[in-house]
Design a protein around this nucleic acid. Structure first.
Lengths: 157, 157
DNA sequence: CTTAGTCCGACCACATTGATCGGAGATCAT
DNA sequence: ATGATCTCCGATCAATGTGGTCGGACTAAG
């Protein structure tokens, strides 16, 4: 199914929200705390907190402690790619077990077969795909319009 | 991590093996049984048997029962795509939970957020990637396809 | 008819993920 | 300075899904 985890989902939602607040027209530069995001999107508070922890530890967002504290994007929304977000939560992208290890040590089945090379090629293509789309692209370029109009985006098929 | 399951891995290995036997120079047209594949690649026999069951039920391979029986590709190696193989084992490609369901029914968090549309776009791109590569390509005959990136980018990495 | 082989269902154990709880440290308001 | 929030971070628990196994029924060759 090639599913991405719910934590990564939450991370994407949270970052998108922070970005739209920070660069929006209403209250630009405002910090956003965990509770606000959790209530807005019906995400379990503690789980979201942990996700945001990881994101800040990996340098995607900055945390400000104490009352009136919260989170801020560490850099521009166009400098944060989807790949960075997902890998920050789920670890390095690995489509198959023997992606990063030396095959032959851990993977007895792959020593005789040649599906490894094409799989790595596919993995690399997926990585490029995720690394070429940024948070800024996800927001549609313009400040938070949250409509889903199928005509707005030309989905190539 | 976006990992594909081991079953799907086994399916790819098995199909690649069957294809190389069937269209190879040594014994073209020979049927291949489960045991042969399992021993060749160190795959648990029973598990591989179940994988091949599913593949045959989904019309990717033909099963011949009884002694001297085994499996045969149902069509040419160039007519079988990686996407078909993986989806045959793991079900339809769904990068996120609300890919095929109607959002708002199952997914309370996504009703307010706009990460759904870009995620579906990414999913579609991945599907194209997997559907443009065939078993024949995996056997090293032809160079691999070139990936096409989604519309918006321009990020240095 | 016997036998070797495949087909097919149900079944179990482990790992990962999703989710929760409790406490410590830091900062702002009073 | 003190208290009250709020973030930070560790450990912990439950559930879903995956990897792997077992036993029986059916089929075709000898």
């Amino acid at each position: 199914m090639l599913k991405i985890s719910k934590k990564a989902d939450y991370a994407l939602m949270a970052l998108q929200h922070i970005a739209s607040v920070q660069f929006g027209d209403v209250t630009p530069g405002r910090v956003v705390n965990t509770k606000e995001i959790a209530e807005e999107y019906n995400i379990p508070l503690e789980l979201l907190a942990k996700v945001l922890q990881v994101l800040s530890k990996n340098g995607l967002i900055e945390s400000h402690n104490g009352p009136k504290g919260g989170y801020l994007l560490a850099r521009s929304a166009r400098q944060i790619t989807i790949a960075q977000i997902i890998e920050s939560i789920e670890g390095p992208l690995a489509i198959t077990d023997c992606s990063h290890e030396k095959a032959g040590e851990f993977c007895m089945q792959l020593e005789h077969c040649n599906i490894r090379t094409p799989l790595l090629k596919i993995q690399d293509s997926i990585y490029q795909l995720l690394n070429n789309m940024t948070l800024g692209d996800m927001m549609g370029g313009t400040p938070l319009i949250t409509i889903q109009s199928p005509s707005a985006q030309g989905v190539e098929r």
